[in-house]
């Protein structure tokens, strides 16, 4: 039993009830956008789920291991594994920017693909085409390479330099 005995503490009977329910919850946390959590889903974007695959393909195209990419981009290894393996992870802005630098992708458009900014219609369409044509494998197939190049081309063309 937990008591808060002071001049203005919570009512004892309420606290007794509340604490038992509190103990049964995995978390009591309030607030924070999913992007702050890095692990909650956003249901509002159909672009963001392809972000992980885009990063994976761009990395493989450059012949980088995940470890090497993490090192070059100065990002935690765990963050990249999470991005590549978990659908709908919303990464931090810095992470996306660093990945864009190393993988030579337009940062502004990559933010859209990552779900951190509202995507332009052409980016949404290109992302859907990319998702439809790509499947994760060890080696990029010719078709996947073409899909990746086409997607990156749209990102570059629609980029306004950010």
């Amino acid at each position: 039993m937990t008591r808060v005995q002071n001049e203005g503490g919570p009512p004892h009977d309420w606290l007794l009830q509340a604490v038992d329910i509190e103990d049964s919850c995995r978390s009591l946390s309030v607030g924070g956008l999913a992007s702050d959590l890095g692990m909650l889903v956003s249901g509002s974007s159909n672009v963001q789920p392809v972000f992980g695959r885009l990063i994976e393909f761009a990395r493989r195209k450059q012949g980088l291991t995940i470890e090497r990419l993490a090192e070059r981009a100065d990002i935690d290894l765990e963050a990249i594994v999470e991005i590549e393996t978990q659908d709908r992870v919303v990464p931090e802005v810095r992470t996306v920017y660093q990945l864009a630098q190393v993988l030579k992708l337009p940062p502004g458009r990559l933010m859209e693909v990552a779900g951190l900014a509202t995507p332009k219609p052409e980016v949404s369409r290109a992302a859907l085409r990319f998702a439809a044509r790509s499947e994760p494998t060890n080696q990029l197939s010719r078709d996947e390479r073409e899909a990746l190049e086409e997607f990156v081309k749209v990102l570059a063309e629609s980029s306004d330099g950010v």
């Binding site: 919850c25 995995r26 909650l40």
Partner: peptide
């Protein structure tokens, strides 16, 4: 008012 994370929803609904 608050926006609860999914794991915390039962606490704010049932306890609070």
């Amino acid at each position: 008012g608050l926006h609860a994370l999914p794991q915390a929803e039962p606490f704010y609904e049932k306890a609070c």
